[in-house]
Simulated assay, not measured.
Amino acid sequence: MKAIPLSITCLLALAGCQTVPDRLPQAEPAPAAACYFPTDPSGQGDTLSVVTDSIDVLEAWGFALETTDTELGLVSASREQELIGYYDRYDYDYGYGSGFRLFGGFGIGRGVGIGVGGSFGPAFGQQPVEVERVSLLARDGHLRISRDIRRFDHLGELRESYSASNDDFCRRFQETFEQTTSTQGAS
């Protein structure tokens, strides 16, 4: 009988340990209840006017529109800000931010080549950035808000990402939205 190598045996044992997730991925924490509110008590609101008023609020807050679909009642916008003095607490755990990086490579093709490059210290002129994205869905006289925040380090690598559909942001948006609609309705 032929002997099975130990590595294949371990691989087969680990393959048997694979499990199927018990639930689909979802936003955590879950969006706050204030992120879903009525725009028209009768439920027959004009989606176009809701989308237009929502865009006015987002632009007043410094967001730039990415996409809009008036038929679906969908608006997507984002804003970006530099993070001065941003520090990632996990920066040094895996060699990131250590002040020296060395890249190298070896390739064979129509010749042989070796490449080595390095960088010292932080990348000057590049700041860590925070990107805040907001998506709005106006449908059936209600408005649903979804918001997430992503932070990138000075090398452009994603460091943090989380759902930020919290009570504070959604309530402020709702109040500003209602002021905008009442102002435009009075004129």
Score class of each variant (00 low, 15 high):
8 I>K: 10
9 T>E: 05
12 L>F: 03
12 L>W: 03
15 A>M: 08
16 G>T: 12
21 P>R: 01
22 D>A: 06
22 D>R: 04
23 R>Y: 10
26 Q>L: 06
27 A>W: 07
28 E>P: 02
28 E>I: 13
30 A>E: 15
31 P>H: 00
32 A>S: 15
35 C>S: 01
38 P>H: 03
41 P>N: 13
42 S>R: 11
44 Q>C: 13
44 Q>T: 14
45 G>H: 06
45 G>P: 05
46 D>W: 02
47 T>P: 01
56 D>P: 01
57 V>G: 01
60 A>C: 10
65 L>W: 02
68 T>Q: 11
68 T>P: 00
70 T>D: 14
72 L>P: 02
72 L>D: 10
76 S>K: 13
79 R>I: 04
82 E>Q: 14
91 D>P: 02
92 Y>C: 08
94 Y>A: 03
97 G>W: 06
102 L>Q: 10
106 F>Q: 09
110 R>P: 12
113 G>K: 11
118 G>A: 14
122 P>V: 06
127 Q>F: 12
128 P>W: 00
132 E>D: 08
132 E>C: 03
133 R>P: 00
135 S>T: 13
136 L>T: 13
138 A>V: 04
140 D>I: 08
153 D>Q: 00
153 D>I: 00
159 R>C: 04
160 E>L: 10
160 E>K: 10
163 S>P: 09
169 F>A: 05
170 C>P: 00
170 C>D: 02
172 R>W: 09
174 Q>G: 03
175 E>H: 13
178 E>A: 11
178 E>F: 09
181 T>Q: 12
184 Q>S: 14
184 Q>M: 12
184 Q>F: 07
187 S>L: 15
